[in-house]
Design a protein around this nucleic acid. Structure first.
Length: 477
RNA sequence: GGCGACAUAGCCAAGUGGUAAGGCCGUGGAUUGCAAAUCCAUUAUCCCCCAGUUCGAAUCUGGGUGUCGCCUCCA
């Protein structure tokens, strides 16, 4: 089986081949830290985290880097609104980012470089671009001359002439602009009053947005990396500009594979800050379980847009409880069934999972395998509770459970038994007594009393199951 | 206006030439005092529309229609 991936650069699926055998160098364009993350950010982080897990599980050693943009107009604006500094705003939202991602179960990258820690690399890159004639200074700013880079537009599939012709007035030359050409972009911006600035050969100033990623990739991963990922909305201009910057200097491809995830849609429109239709991860997790959110995102192909609705999240919550039941099977019944603890996997199931996901990270296809296993396990669990028997061979059940657990881990799903069910205050014998009282009421046809007792127990998390022959068993939720 | 992506049951969604995975919801039956839970069974003659290629297409080609993204900060 071969992993096949869709490459934005070639607009095609092709077999995945690494530069160095068994090693993957992967870079993800992270976030600008001026506010809490929303569901759209969650999708990006979640999807690429799972891609990385999958690559690792497939036998690759993955070096995964994700940046924080901590120099930016929006951060400065936020700082002045809050009467604080750019650093304070960045720190606050970086901390919030880690809290949110931990709750979602997103693994940590190998490093989180920041623009403010990459100034040397950035300035070196700008200087090299200037030396090679790709950049020009203008009154303290430095711009990249896109017309000097023949490949400009190759990632997003556009031509400069078309963009200019088709933009219908949207790219009118700003009379105050220092650019030589409308699509040139800033590598370095001259310092404004009261704003943070760094010394440079072009005067005090700060870096433009795109240059930091070029510098970080080069510094942390090298001149050509295997996979560069990010949200689809970054394809142009951000990633296009990264390519222009890096490749102009090195003469080598910046990345062999460019992968982009689709957007979250709300009522037909992209979830975004500017539209104000976003829901933060924190708000979301007040209402839904993290694993349900993960399922909601992974059930869709990563490149397609996904509609956010409460109905979809509720559905995902129900689906998650099915999966969860399967995942908890061994914890709940393993001891009783005498699980051996050996880690044997069902290769047929593993292969089906792998062949699904190997096709451009088709996680939805992989999840179908997980659901199949989980459904059977939860069914066996139910039969065990109700009838005290199982219908599948114990060894096979254990193998299924081990397989489910491992495959779920690849996708980042983990379940744990809720610990707060022991505070009902009722001991087993007390429950037995109440159940007996209820059965007496039932035999006297005093159903009002019997239902009252059942409700009372239910409210304390005790579910009664009436079986044929007047036998009642119970269990704690 | 330019570039790109997508269109499969009530909802979400996989499937890229051989006759429609999976999830959620629902339905029928068993069981029950009634429930709940559970078990069993069941839910697209058809994949946006039209034409074509083919023995055969949801899957390929052409043309429509619709939706979304990017072209400005953006995950």
């Amino acid at each position: 089986m071969t992993l096949t991936v869709y490459n934005t650069l070639t607009r095609n699926k092709s077999a995945f081949q690494t530069i160095e055998e068994h090693k993957v160098r992967m870079y993800c364009c992270g976030i600008t830290v001026y506010d809490y993350c929303h569901l759209g950010h969650a999708r990006t982080c979640l999807v690429w985290d799972v891609v990385r897990r999958y690559l690792q599980w497939s036998g690759y050693e993955v070096k995964y880097i994700q940046n924080f943009t901590d120099i930016d107009d929006k951060i400065l604006k936020r700082a002045s609104q809050e009467g604080t500094s750019m650093e304070a705003v960045s720190e606050k939202y970086i901390a919030a980012y880690f809290e949110d991602m931990e709750r979602l179960g997103v693994g940590q990258a190998d490093a989180y470089p920041r623009a403010t820690h990459t100034l040397d690399g950035i300035k070196r890159l700008v200087a090299e671009l200037e030396q090679k004639g790709f950049a020009y200074p203008a009154e303290g700013d430095v711009y990249y001359a896109v017309r000097k880079f023949p490949d400009y537009g190759k990632l997003s599939g556009r031509k400069l002439e078309d963009m200019q012709a088709g933009a219908s007035g949207r790219v009118d030359q700003d009379p105050d602009s220092k650019k030589q050409y409308p699509f040139d972009f800033a590598l370095w911006k001259a310092a404004k009053e009261d704003e943070p600035a760094w010394e440079s050969p072009w005067g005090n100033g700060r870096p433009g947005w795109h240059i930091e990623c070029s510098a970080m990739v080069r510094e942390r991963l090298g001149e050509t990396i295997d996979i560069h990922v990010g949200g689809g909305d970054l394809t142009f201009p951000h990633h296009e500009n990264e390519i222009a910057q890096s490749e102009a200097v090195t003469g080598k491809p910046l990345a062999n594979y460019w992968l982009h995830n689709g957007m979250i849609i709300v009522e037909g429109k992209k979830m975004s800050k500017s539209l104000g239709n976003f829901i933060t991860i924190r708000e979301l997790l007040d209402k839904y379980e993290p694993m349900a959110v993960r399922l909601f995102i992974l059930q869709a192909q990563y490149r397609k847009p996904v509609d956010f609705t409460d109905e979809a999240l509720s559905t995902a919550t129900n689906s998650w409880s099915t999966l969860k039941e399967g995942l908890l099977f061994g914890d709940q019944y393993g001891e009783q069934l005498g699980f051996s603890g050996t880690n044997l996997l069902d290769q047929e199931l593993v292969n089906r999972f792998k062949s699904a996901v190997d096709d451009d990270f088709n996680f939805a296809g992989g999840l179908a395998v997980l659901f199949e296993i989980a459904k059977n396990l939860s069914k066996e669990g139910h039969i065990l509770i109700h009838e005290g028997i199982i219908k599948t061979d114990v060894q096979e059940l254990e193998q299924q459970w081990q397989t489910l657990t491992q495959l779920a881990t690849v996708l980042g799903f983990t379940a744990s038994i809720d610990k707060d069910n022991s505070n009902t205050g009722l001991s087993d014998s007390e429950i037995d007594t109440l159940v007996q009282q209820r059965n007496e009421a039932r035999s006297n046809k005093d159903y009002a009393q019997s239902d009252r007792l059942r409700d009372q127990l239910q409210s304390q998390g005790i579910t009664l199951i009436d079986k044929p022959g007047g036998i009642t068993i119970w269990n704690r939720d």
